[in-house]
C-alpha cells in the first residue's frame, strides 16, 4: 500500500471519528432541547416547584443552583489560584512537591459521590450544620480545587519565561513580578478554567445530594438578610439545586408531570452549561487579544 493511499485512509478514519462525536453531541443536545424547550416558559422559571400536583416550576432550584455556584466559586477561586501560584512559582522540585501534586491528583479523581459522603459526615453530621448551602459549597470546593490549582499552575507555566526574567532583571521582587506581570498574563487561562469549573459545579448532583439536601424551605425573595430563616441568601438552609431536582423528580417524584418538569429542567441546565462554555471562550479570546494586541 503506498503512502498516498494510507494518507487518504487515515484522513477518512479521522473524519469519520470526528463526525461520530459531532453526531452524538448534536443528537444528545437536540433530544434534550426538543423535549425540554417546549416546557420552558416564564411561568416555569418563576413558580415554586410542587411536590404533588402538576404545573410546578423550578424557581427555587434555579436560584439555588446559581447561589451554590456563586458561593462555591467564592471559596474555590481564591484557594485554587493561591495553590496554583504556589505550585508554579514557589514549590521547589522535590519529595514534598511531588507528594502535594499526587494529593491534588488524587483529589481530582475522587468520585463526586464520595465527596458527597464526606460532606455528609463532616459538614452535615460532625459540624451539625444539617443540609446547608455552605456545606454543599464546601463539598464542591473539595471537588473543584484540584482543577483550579491545575489550571492556574498550567496558565502560569505557559507565561513566557522572558517576561518573568524581564521583570526580575529590572529589580522587581518575586511577589511583585507575580502580581504585575505573571498573573495578568495568566489571567485568560485562569478565567477560562474557572468558568469551566463553574459549568461542572452547575451540573453536579451526586456531591450535593447529601450536603444541600433535597428540599428548599419556603423562600421570601423580598428578604435579603442572609441571616434570616426564609431569606434566599441564608447559607445555613437546605437548597435543592437544579440537577438534584432532576434526579429527585425522576427517581421518587409523585407529580403527574414528571416528564415535563424534568425535560424542562434538563434543557435549562444544559443551556446554562452551554452558556458558561461560550462565555468562557468569548471572554478568554477577548482578553487574550487585549493582552497580545493580536487581531
Amino acid at each position: 500500500m503506498n503512502s498516498k493511499v494510507s494518507d487518504r485512509i487515515a484522513t477518512g478514519v479521522f473524519v469519520l471519528l470526528a463526525s461520530i462525536i459531532v453526531l452524538l453531541l448534536v443528537s444528545l443536545f437536540g433530544y434534550i432541547l426538543v423535549r425540554g424547550v417546549p416546557h420552558i416558559s416564564l411561568d416555569f422559571l418563576t413558580t415554586e416547584s410542587s411536590t404533588v400536583s402538576a404545573g410546578g416550576g423550578i424557581r427555587d432550584q434555579l436560584f439555588n443552583s446559581f447561589y451554590v455556584l456563586f458561593i462555591t466559586m467564592l471559596i474555590t477561586v481564591p484557594l485554587g489560584v493561591c495553590g496554583g501560584i504556589y505550585m508554579a512559582e514557589y514549590a521547589k522540585p522535590g519529595k514534598l512537591t511531588n507528594f502535594i501534586r499526587s494529593c491534588i491528583e488524587m483529589l481530582a479523581s475522587l468520585p463526586s459521590i464520595v465527596v458527597g459522603m464526606f460532606g455528609l459526615l463532616i459538614f452535615v453530621n460532625t459540624f451539625d450544620w444539617g443540609y446547608s448551602i455552605i456545606g454543599g459549597a464546601l463539598a464542591l470546593t473539595i471537588f473543584n480545587i484540584p482543577t483550579m490549582v491545575r489550571v492556574t499552575e498550567d496558565s502560569i507555566r505557559s507565561v513566557p519565561g522572558e517576561l518573568k526574567e524581564a521583570s526580575l532583571a529590572l529589580g522587581i521582587t518575586h511577589w511583585h513580578t507575580i502580581k504585575t506581570v505573571i498573573l495578568p498574563s495568566a489571567f485568560p487561562g485562569i478565567l477560562t478554567g474557572a468558568i469551566l469549573a463553574a459549568g461542572r459545579v452547575f451540573g453536579e448532583a451526586a456531591a450535593l445530594l447529601f450536603t444541600v439536601g433535597l428540599s428548599t424551605p419556603r423562600l421570601d425573595y423580598g428578604n435579603w438578610n442572609p441571616f434570616s430563616e426564609d431569606s434566599p441568601l441564608n447559607l445555613m438552609r437546605p437548597a435543592e439545586t437544579l440537577s438534584v431536582h432532576i434526579w429527585a423528580t425522576n427517581t421518587n417524584g409523585i407529580i403527574p408531570d414528571i416528564d415535563a418538569v424534568s425535560a424542562g429542567a434538563s434543557a435549562i441546565l444544559i443551556l446554562s452549561v452551554l452558556l458558561f462554555n461560550l462565555i468562557a471562550r468569548w471572554l478568554g479570546s477577548v482578553i487574550h487579544k487585549k493582552y497580545t494586541a493580536s487581531k
Binding site: L168, A169, L170, G171
Partner: peptide
Amino acid sequence: DLVQLRKEIGMIFQKGNPFPQ
C-alpha cells in the same frame, strides 16, 4: 540586595520581551 543590584544593573535580552501591556 537583588532589588538594588538589578536596579543599578539593567539587562537587555536576546529577544525583545516587552510586557503585554
